[in-house]
Computed example of a mutant assay.
Amino acid sequence: MYDPAQLRSIHLSRFGDEPAIFAAPGRVNIIGEHTDYAEGFVMPAAIDFATLAAISPRADGKVVLYSENYAEQREFEASSLPAERSGHWTDYPLGVLAVLAGEGHTIPSFSLSLWGDVPLGSGLSSSAAIEVATALAVTALIDVGYPRPVLARLCQRSENEFVGSSCGIMDQFISANAAENNALLLDCRDLTFRLAPIPASVALVIANTMVQHAITGGEYTSRRAQVEEAAAVIARHRPEVRFLRDATLDDLERYGSEMSPLALKRARHVITENTRTVAAAEALIHHDLKELGRLMAEAHVSYSQDFEASCEEADAMVELAQDLPGLIGARLTGGGFGGCTVNLVEQQHAREFAAALGQRYAARTGIIPQIHICHASGGANRVQESIQAVT
């Protein structure tokens, strides 16, 4: 649960000024991993977890950032903000400010309070939620309006160029553009999308393995490099192929011997995952939940074996869900190497499913997981004063 009224009270007490409050959700990716930076397809949904940003103007030339989660405040001169990351949580809002400044906007003096309940390092995109909430708050303060796809791209740039993470566009896009009760099939090439309704009879059960990942780490970066290596090999023979979005399994048959074995495996995952993701959206649109579940299962095997971005705990979480009542499909979600699994479950069985999966996982691994029953939420927005709490 996140509580705008509580953040308003915190901000008012700390800074003495009435804030405007914005919320940006985290996300769960139902299918389509490591396809976004290959200009492919992804199918995420926003979830109930979010980051809140409370902002108010100042008159002393300072930008003051406060995190309720870290119980820490940092001050900067608005006219000379840091030009590079420091490895601190402030990198995420400062990165947004750096990109906005690069777009020609003068960064004013303000106080910004952040608070969120998106679990850090869980694969539910806490960083994108911070970026989008910050961007909405600051652009509102300076009275600048960006179309939501453009805002998402600016936030992606802040993470790529300032924070130093080579993430694709998916996380920021779904946080900014989500529609309640829908997944979103996003074409990462041109940012067009289709909504795929999630039936009211289906719950999103998110199971946190409690194994944290960091997408600024070496594993994520090496996987992306291997994907790009494979695309470059194919492009030598087919110059029109700039990204694996345009490649086929036939290309791997023809030119795979010119790639490193790891690049070949990564490419096979990305190419087949693109096909699965489009098929999964069609299955959801046509209410073919059996086919959706089959595609999710296939996607997890590919993610674990070809992309090698799973881990023992995540594989166990997926395995242990398979024979539980109500399961439609289960797979590891997010950047990989830990984090959460997403389980589509018949709503009537969701609580029983969550309890049983938690017990099984704890017995298998000795780790007590966090398991949440969620629904697909709407995208980032300004929080109305009348809203007291959102669950």
Rank of each mutant, 00 (worst) to 15 (best):
H349Y: 14
A135S: 12
A362P: 01
G358M: 05
D117M: 07
N29W: 02
A135K: 02
C155I: 03
A152S: 13
E103V: 00
T365C: 10
W115N: 11
Q322A: 15
I328G: 05
T391Y: 15
P147H: 09
A267H: 08
A83I: 10
G26S: 03
V42I: 05
I234T: 11
A207I: 11
T192W: 01
R245M: 04
R238C: 08
C188W: 01
Q226D: 11
V63T: 04
G338R: 12
A23D: 01
C311M: 00
D306R: 01
E298R: 14
E313N: 08
I234C: 12
R268W: 10
R157G: 07
P197W: 04
E161P: 05
T216K: 12
D315V: 09
Q6D: 13
L124W: 08
C340K: 00
G102I: 00
G366R: 05
R8D: 08
L12E: 15
A45D: 00
A38Y: 00
N177G: 03
L136P: 07
L320S: 08
L184Y: 04
P93N: 00
D143C: 10
M170K: 03
L124V: 06
I107E: 03
L284S: 03
P93F: 07
G164F: 06
L136M: 14
V211R: 12
L112E: 06
A5H: 14
G116A: 05
V144A: 04
L114R: 07
E352D: 14
A314R: 02
D246F: 11
M259E: 06
G217R: 05
S302Y: 04
E131Q: 14
L185R: 06
R268H: 12
A363Y: 02
A135T: 11
L136T: 04
T35I: 09
G87D: 03
D306L: 14
G123H: 07
L151K: 03
A355M: 09
A230W: 12
V345G: 05
L94M: 09
I169Y: 07
D315Q: 01
P147T: 12
C311W: 00
A214S: 14
T209H: 03
F243V: 12
E33N: 12
L81A: 10
A330M: 01
F15D: 13
G95S: 10
S56T: 10
E75L: 10
I174V: 15
S377R: 08
A362H: 13
A128G: 08
R266G: 07
P93K: 06
I107D: 04
L324S: 09
A128E: 03
E240W: 11
N177H: 06
R245A: 04
D117E: 02
G293N: 10
V42M: 01
D315A: 05
A267N: 08
D187G: 05
L124S: 08
T365P: 09
S67D: 00
F337E: 05
N381D: 12
V64K: 04
E180I: 05
A214E: 14
A20K: 14
T139C: 15
L324E: 07
G217E: 15
Q359P: 01
N274K: 11
G358R: 04
A267L: 12
H349T: 03
S9Y: 10
A59P: 04
